[in-house]
Design a protein around this nucleic acid. Sequence first.
DNA 1: CCAAAAGTGTTTCCGATACACCCATGA
DNA 2: TCATGGGTGTATCGGAAACACTTTTGG
Lengths: 230, 230
Amino acid sequence: MSHSYEHPRPALAVDCVVFGLDENGLQVLLVERGVAPFKGRTALPGGFVRLDETLEEAARRELEEETGLGAKVFLEQLYTFGDLHRDPRERVVSVAYYALVKLSDHRVRAATDASAAAWFRLGDKPQLPFDHEQILRVAKARLQAKVRYQPLGFELLPPRFTLAQLQSLYEAVLEKPVDKRNFRKKILSMELLEETGEREEGVSHRAARLYRFDRKRYVALEKAGVNFEL
Amino acid sequence: MSHSYEHPRPALAVDCVVFGLDENGLQVLLVERGVAPFKGRTALPGGFVRLDETLEEAARRELEEETGLGAKVFLEQLYTFGDLHRDPRERVVSVAYYALVKLSDHRVRAATDASAAAWFRLGDKPQLPFDHEQILRVAKARLQAKVRYQPLGFELLPPRFTLAQLQSLYEAVLEKPVDKRNFRKKILSMELLEETGEREEGVSHRAARLYRFDRKRYVALEKAGVNFEL
DNA sequence: CCAAAAGTGTTTCCGATACACCCATGA
DNA sequence: TCATGGGTGTATCGGAAACACTTTTGG
């Protein structure tokens, strides 16, 4: 079926930069393209926006289809890329989103071939087609800026985590070491963490306390205009 | 002439939020719509994106056409709005930009009827159609956030300005008073201002020194990663 | 000489940073 | 008992904020 319009219009797509974290640091989720152009190449997940869905819905749908990621991941609009020749087929404008997920929940590496999605370390990924390198750069910059004044970090960790895990998350994102005592002081003083009373298990040394992110309190503090600068 | 595509696609537009400043505080530039829908209503300037122009080019073209604003105003992408029914005609996705201009250079109020553009105080404007109220809210929030860590203020002032003018600009944007001595200390310590040696003229009291924004130095400092937090 | 705005320093306070040792646990 | 990471407090520094009077100029 064909659709016609009085004036020509660009195609509209969404692309997603999904960040995750594990022991090896910050990772990004990429998929193998199943269709031309760049068929077989590794790229950001994304696709065209349908008429009956908002931009964010389109981004979530593509994530679900291409990577199996659930509907409740943290997702935020990043920037809209509209250079004339960013897509070799025709004029395509892409609204980019970035997402943060707990990598432990989403071990898609060696995924079902249906999805063909895999995690890559930032320093260790293939060259990306289209303008996806640029999109990824912008996303990383945004993540680094944002983590300073919003406790996004919690989106990247499992529901219960140790302070050491949280600290290495910050170190991975900011790409620099952080003082342990100062970090703990600061993060605990925000009163966003709730002690679960539980301990880490299966380690051959003193077991760390497990914390949980207090989302209710976060929402309350945010409304009150509190600053979460690291 | 008609254009057809295999899949239906949303129309793609740009909208601009143009901020300006004068003695009465922060103002926004609005136009009277010449076409349906909402013909005759006051709204943000904007229009559809053509195939042979980037998003920013489209925004500048619309600004030029509807308000006569030159090509060199400060313009930055704000956010992309894609709710399903934001336009009553059909699905339209709009990439919003915001601009800062020296209002003194652009006295378009009581403009040529060709443009029908006028400045409005933020507290004193008609209700806007589409989702333009939302766009304006987002733009204001962005401006307030941005002015804290980027000396955007200079875009809003004439080429030579007094420190008092600059201070009232900050006060207008942040909507709160600022201490004169601390402000001067801070802003001068950034070394972004160059004294012109000239004085204000025609005032019936001590004449203030005129300063100029040192753009070269700004670019250099920005590259070096310097912080401009107010 | 009066009105109006320009211009100018110091003190206080708080949060950021730097820094090193003891503790608990399992192997 | 040793190896491993968990957990803790204090002193210093620097920037933010609070604060009021003198100077200049034109009317």
